[in-house]
């Protein structure tokens, strides 16, 4: 997947939820939205990019979402 595009998409999501004065709610909503609507390989790519420090310009809410809700964003292991 195209990492810069994923960063743009994640930032758009964060920009919407960043208007919530309750920052923690915004962080949780960002993580929740990505988990509910992104196919696992997209999330995997974003997390890998984040770990490798390649997500240039990532919105601070996405950074917080990845840091605080990592388990939620990890793809579910398919049994």
């Amino acid at each position: 997947m195209n990492l810069p595009k994923l960063v743009t998409m994640a930032n758009q999501i964060a920009s919407f939820f960043a208007t919530d004065p309750d920052r923690q709610a915004g962080v949780a909503s960002t993580a929740n939205h990505i988990q509910k609507f992104w196919e696992p390989r997209m999330r995997k790519e974003l997390l890998a990019g984040f770990d490798a420090g390649k997500c240039e310009g990532l919105h601070e809410l996405v950074v917080a979402a990845v840091q605080q809700h990592r388990a939620q964003l990890e793809p579910i292991a398919v049994g």
Binding site: M1, N2, F37
Partner: peptide
């Protein structure tokens, strides 16, 4: 049935170009 969401159309295009 898989518990994870699938690819949306624009994501399918990106994934096709990416080879997955």
């Amino acid at each position: 049935i898989q518990p994870e969401p699938g690819l949306r159309i624009p994501n399918m295009f990106d994934a096709a170009i990416d080879g997955s």
